[in-house]
Each structure stands twice: as C-alpha cells, then as structure tokens.
Amino acid sequence: MTALFDWLAQILGILAAVLAAPLFLGWVNQCRAWLQNKSAPSILQPYRGIRKLFHKDAVIAANASQLFRLAPYMVFGAMVTAAAIIPSVATRLPFTQAADAIALVGLFATARVFVSLAAMDVGTAFGTLGARREMMIGFLAEPALLMIIFVASLISATTALPRISELLATQSLALYPSLAFTAVAFTMVLLAENARIPIDNPATHLELTMIHEALLLEYSARHLALMEWAAALKLFNYVCIGFALFVPWGLATSQAPLALALSSLFLGAKLVLAGAGIALIETVSAKLRVFRAPEFLATAFLFAVLGLLVRLLLGT
C-alpha cells in the first residue's frame, strides 16, 4: 500500500513539475516586465504560446534527418526524467535514488548534446553557430557545477541530492559560509545554463546575440513547443536543484500526504522568491559578449573553489 502511494506521489510530483514549469517561467517574465516598468504579459502566457504551437502544422527543412525530429522528444524526456529525480517536494520518493547530483549534470549534458546536434542537422550558419556556443557554455559551466557539488558533498559526505537536503534541512539552522560562496557560484551557473542574461537574452531574436534561439531557429509547431517546454522545465529543475542544495527547509522527508502538501506550499513560496530574484538579476545586469562568457563562468568556478577552501581550511 505504501509502495503504491509512493509511486502515486512520484507520478503526481512529475506531472506537477511538468505542468508548473511554464507557470514559473511566466512568473519570471511577469516580474521582469514589472521591474522594467512595462505592462506585464499574463502569467499564463507561456501556456498560450505552447498551446498555439501545438496547433500549428510542423514545417521541417527539406534536408532534416530523423535525428532532428527525435531531438525534441529526447530533450523533453531528459528534462522530465530530471524532474523525477530531483527532490523538489519529498526526499524519499522512488526515483530520487536513480541518480546523484553528478548524474543529473550528465543528464542535462545529454539534453544539451541532442539540442546541439539537432541544430547542426539542417546545416545553416545559425544552427551550427548556436550549437558551438551552447557546447562552449556547457564545458565552461560543468567544472564550476562540479565544484559546487563537491562542496555540498564535503558537508554531507555524499553526492546524493536527497541526502544532502535531509542533512541540511534537519539540522538546527546552521550557517555554512562555504555554502554561501557556492550559492553565488550556482546562481551564476544557473543563469548561464538556462540562457538568461548576462549570457544570453531570452527576450531577443537578434541572431548575433543569441544562443538558445539560434539552436531552435529551424524548429516549428509541436517540436518547437516541446523544446520551449523543455527549456522551461530545465529552468525549473535548476532552481529546484538550487533549493535542494542550499535552502532545503520545508522538504518532506516522509510520504505523509500532509507533509507533502506542506512541502509543496514551501516549494511554491520559494519559487515565487526565486523567480523574482532571477528577474531582478536580469534587470540590473547587461548581456555580455559571447567571449566574455568564459570570464563569467570562471568567476563562478572561483567562487566555488573559494567555498571549497573555506570548507577545508575553516571547516565551516
């Protein structure tokens, strides 16, 4: 019976994450519009966009291969898998032990490689340009991400996200300076990996400044909808990883329905704050040139190393 309930909770959790992801994106966009003194689109705008795209006829380049059509499903599948694994609401669900933090990074890398390969498939200048920039951001971000995981694992002696969260959540409010440094690093990686300002501008379609848009240039209709949905889900997933590593308070460590409901409320509140925070960062910073991206991510790496040294030298 408990096993059945576990699985039910797991599947509900996945569905909730998949359905809530565009809402979170809508919230970020709304906040950003407010901060920039514009009239904001509805918070439901991402859903409308996805719905509209699903209704359209798919137009595919004449020389696109099967890989091009497979990639959106693959990327969406990878993001849903990640959503199943990340302990966003509860730490003891069945799938949470399928991967630790490093394997999650690997899963995101799989999605990235498929997006890039699909972008190269049609063989236009923009697609390959986007692919190479996306892969560049990827290899710059991954070492920083690993250092972040390293620091978290030094505190809890494991790289399993649910165990890290449990340890931090159940302790009486202990402050780790090392985690503060790594949280900064993680925020920078999150912005870079999700094509936000200052690495990429999600609001433009100006070809020469973009990474994410260049990758999706050839996609239309349902394929584009899946890609956009997957991107929203990726942002959601990253934010949830951030919560699990740095602010796990309120996570349910049991499967009692009440605990899960309470934990969902906590998650909602944290998402509202995080969305506003991302919007604020995007409002106060300017987009960097592509070749300044390495400096940005090297800074993130150094912050993570600083966290590591603080942890090793001071033990805090």
């Binding site: 969406f76 394997a103 899946l226």
Partner: peptide
C-alpha cells in the same frame, strides 16, 4: 556508506516512456 546510487536503466526507461507518451 556514502548513500550514492545510479540507475541508468531508470534513465533509459523513463526517457523512453516519456518519449512514447509524448508522441
């Protein structure tokens, strides 16, 4: 003792199921 685990079959199965369901 480190409580780390990795289940590639779950990756494989979930991705496959999601792809089939989505299609």
């Amino acid at each position: 003792q480190r409580q780390i685990s990795y289940a590639p079959l779950v990756f494989f199965a979930v991705i496959l199921v999601v792809i089939v369901l989505t299609i």
